[in-house]
Amino acid sequence: MLFTYLLLAIGALKLLTATAKAIVGEVPRDRVEQFARLHSLPITAGNGNQVIVYRATTRRWRTSGFAAGIAIQVAIRGPHFLDAGWVFVGWFVGAAVAELRVAHLDRGPHASASLTPRRLADYLPRAGRFAVPGTMGLCVLTTGYCVADHHAHPSGDLTSVAAWAALGLGVGLVALTAQRLVLRRPQPMAEPDQLAADDAIRSRSMHVLAAAGMVLAGTCIGSQLEAADILHHDRIADIFNTMVGFGLPIAGWILAYRPSPARREGSTPSAPPTAPSAPEPA
């Protein structure tokens, strides 16, 4: 018993040390290099600090969320019932909050802006754009399936199914809202290398939010099936749950760490969708 408590104390101490280091410590050089590699971004004297500040802000908030996820669970349920899912929830909330805290480029003495509209498609591939809405859709479909199949599994708890569905949809909405905030973060005109870094930062944020939102909402799907008591009784549901349980984290990891060149800020606005239309009759 004493040994268990000793291990827990050491674990808590290590967690506290790692959290403190992430909050106030320096960003390792390899992290900046990894970021530059993922986005094919040349790090210059002008944009180096920009990337370091971004990495420091996101690391600080994500780690704080992660640690809070553990601390809250320990406080509520005790140290023996640590659920990785809720720890991930804490990390995700920290990641979303970090996006609100990331500083935008300085406007300088003369405010200027590009007339090029920023779109989600500029920063995320098609699969990434549909990751969160698709998982939210799956969450709704699973709810429908659980309700329809309730007569075959009357021991299932439909209230819990609905609660997990609400949580899954809520997580999806948080991810989509955070993506929207990232897209709207001001981008005044600046030096090309700073604009490239700003675009790379947006792209990184979008990828992480899409991947984390998808995996977290996907976790709720598994919990829905479990709450409905369908798992281990329905072969199709078991296969589906396995696919969601393993497939989504793998897809999320691929999406989050997929190399994505920074969006090149054009000096011209987006081209018309079609050729200029013929003159309209007066």
Partner: peptide, 20 residues
């Protein structure tokens, strides 16, 4: 320089970028 059919940025985007 801005031909017909060209999309302008959303109001919120331009306002945010210019600090207006």
């Amino acid at each position: 320089a801005l031909p017909p059919g060209t999309r302008l940025p959303p109001i919120r985007q331009l306002a945010g970028d210019l600090g207006l």
